[in-house]
Design a binder for these strands. Structure first.
Lengths: 113, 113
DNA sequence: AGCATGAATAGATATCTGTCAATATAGATA
DNA sequence: TATCTATATTGACAGATATCTATTCATGCT
């Protein structure tokens, strides 16, 4: 299952109104960011030296169960914010910086002159 | 009811992990963006010449009912993405560019060198 | 005052979502 | 093969949410 191109062809919010389709795609990504646990997971992965984090390191940082963390990781992966790779017994998650960059650009507002 | 400072003191995701409190605040704003109708409303307001839009202009752009639009506007207002002002019979909504800028900065990832 | 219009609120409801316990899968090791 | 560990999946459920209709509130106009 390929990660969908949810952000494809979406102009900055302040440039022109989004179409329904564009809004639907972009909203999926923001929705993924709209949960405290997922947002914190993302910040843990994004800020980790080396750029990747083992699931076991994430699980330990939360009070929620391991299946719940696994579920959130899946959501972040499906919208293209994270990728994963298994090496041996462990699975490592890594940020997809392009996705974050595109989101960041989407929210960019021309300076109020 | 003051708009809460949901983004207060939150470092860029890629700099250090968010605390629970930070994540909870920021997630509220992203959750507001995580709905297609709200995202499209925001893009309509943000891209409109003059910087403000009458509710009646928004309502006409969607297939959903007027109360539903009103509900979404309230959500966007509560998280600090929009402000509103009544002038006569009409209510005008306006973007809060600072909030978008802070979000954009939050998502900013140092260039992969 | 009475009425018309734009917008917000209240209440109801179907759907979505975050969470957990239980189980399954994948890989390592004995 | 048997077993242990690390993740993922399944199924269930309580709480959240998007939507609607009906109503109320606010303003302007006659």
């Amino acid at each position: 299952m390929e990660p969908l191109e949810l952000l494809e062809c979406s102009p900055p919010l302040a440039r022109e109104p989004l179409t329904m389709q564009q809004a639907a795609g972009v909203a999926q990504v923001f929705k993924a960011l709209g949960d405290p646990v997922r947002l914190r997971i993302l910040s843990i992965v994004a800020s980790h030296t080396g750029g990747e984090v083992c699931v076991c390191d994430i699980t330990g940082a939360f009070d929620v169960s391991q299946p719940t963390i696994s579920h959130h990781l899946k959501v972040l992966k499906e919208v293209g914010l994270l990728t994963s790779e298994r090496r041996g017994s462990w699975v490592y998650y890594r940020l997809v910086p392009e996705t974050l960059s595109e989101l960041s650009a989407l929210l960019n507002v021309p300076a109020t002159v």
